[in-house]
Write a protein that binds this DNA or RNA. Sequence first.
DNA 1: ATGACCAATTGA
DNA 2: CAATTGGTCATG
Length: 684
Amino acid sequence: MSQQPDPAAEQPELLPGMVRATARDARRQAARSRQRTAAQAPLADRAPVAQVLVDVPLAHLDRPFDYAVPASMADDASPGVRVKVRFAGQDVDGYVVARAERSDHPGALAPLLRVVSAEPVLSTAVAELTAAVAARYAGTRSDVLRLAVPPRHATTEKEPSPPAPRPEVDLGAAADAWADHTHGPAFVRALGAGGAPRAVWSAPPTADWAALLAQAAAATHHSGRGALLCVPDGKDVARLDAALTALLGPGHHVALTAESGPSARYRDFLAVSRGARRVVVGTRAAAFAPVSDLGLVVVWDDGDDLHAEPRAPYPHTREVLLLRAEQEGAAAIVGGFARTVEAAYLLESGWARELSVDRRVIRERVQVGVTGASDHDLARDVHSRNSRMPHQVHTTIRAGLEIGPVLVQTPRSGYAAALACERCRTPARCRSCRGPLRLTGVATAPACRWCGVEEPAWACGECGHRGLRAPVVGDSRTAEELGRSFPGVPVQASSGDHVVVRVGTEPRIVVATPGAEPVAEGGFAAVVLLDTWLALSREDLRSAEEALRRWMNAVALLRPGGRAVAVGDPHHPALQALVRWDPAGFAARESAERVSAHLPPASRIASITGDPGAVDDALTLLSLPEPAEVLGPVAVGGDGEVRAVIRVPRAAGARLSAALGELQRARSSRKLDAVRVQVDPASM
DNA sequence: ATGACCAATTGA
DNA sequence: CAATTGGTCATG
């Protein structure tokens, strides 16, 4: 034991802070001797120190603390178990992350109060993952842990998790299923041989994506490793669940969804954490599932905003899974019918390879056309059904009904609040600030959403027309109109809380909002996309990417040989990409545009939101990496809050996250007003 | 968060 | 001079 030299003895001229530090040392010394004299229960013979992550919401306390392990808890207090400890005078919950022979802590250690349960619920891999996710999103580990570990359910914990039967996987059949994809069979064989290939998968229209992913999971299972597949919603979980059951039989996999209650949720979690189930499918919450010996992660349709966690620190499923793939050496598939710019970036950076089907093959499978409202129709009747549903829509539906069911996709009602010119569909904008106009009430004048100026005498800047069109054409009205046009044909609506999951082969019309499209047995005979201009008029960075994703997801439901028609502007790049079925080209172009506009994923951005004073303090406290740009702060929402946006080149992304984490720790220890920090916010 | 501690400030 | 308030630091 070497004695620390007393700084006061060597440096006569002291800063005031150092004097305080000496006083602090004296206090600490006193506390130490007090504890040393306290009566102690016998400690564990081996590894008497437990490193514990305590569940406190403070950023600057977000690290493990050492505790003494009483002999009575020596066996139970293993890494991953829940414990109760005394912390800052309070009894708090925590997780043991490791056991050690000794501690770096200079003082005496407080003992663990209690091992809540000997069930190890936090695996080493997931513990490391939560650290990486917290660092990446400048959040606290305790917030991430709440997303990763479900609440305990004591009665469920007593039940055993029956082990899965030995799987029988036909690796050859799995490779064959992917035969029409370039490199597909090789990819699947690599999974089966224990490899960790990484792919961005552009699924071709009509593909049974769930069956293909099930084959990939089965091949991974064959290699003795686990697989984790995350999809946007419960409907997709059900579809993948069914595909896995069909392929592996029951008892090999588990489906985790938000719908199941706390007991079922914990039971399924335990089946995974105990290693009784190695194939897991679920929604975004499943991204943290403690799959043992993880061999493959899959995110399907990563552009769907359901993959963005709405709770702090707002992690995205794709990012969580890609972190896992890196940390656990697993293979990865980022798949979808459409392609996000983030997926395109994975290819550009060489992190992943492309899995796709030759475009010539795709064009043989489905035909996609665009039809605009003809000038003739517009001139005759601007309000008419004809301009919204041109002649070609009716012929496509009629031809489709000869063969089977027809899907009509219509944007969600109230989906875009912006108004547009009734005649030429140009979005209506404020004359003073160019902001979008909206209606605040039924009998009021349109007003600007940005500056609030009213425009009672608005006229279209493009065509001079004075009529405005409110974009509220609900799916029920569309269904009504179609019912009149096709008498005798059953018309079904699928949207919101009335989602139709499956339809059969018999002719019918299904009117669905994006994301609520049913799957048709054998595929739809025809697909119609209405009001495409509406999705494109949205005020968002990703509106074109998002629109194309929704259209492709609908068109993909066609049967081979099916036809689709979209009503819209044939010159719009998103519709051209749809017609050519070119998700790769579109994403690459968007990606290039983002690079030149310094937007993600080429840049990393973060937002700081809160009261003006708090945001100001935060920006002062923040030591930004070079180079960085601060935009704002600007007012956001009606409650007096402001938001500042920080932008750095992607290479400085990790340093930005670190600086923001440092900011949160400094802020929390100095009791400054809270600000909300979001790294890569889902929407701006 | 919560508490301990110290220094500066206030009031009689 | 004591009582009160505010800032800083630590939490094992």
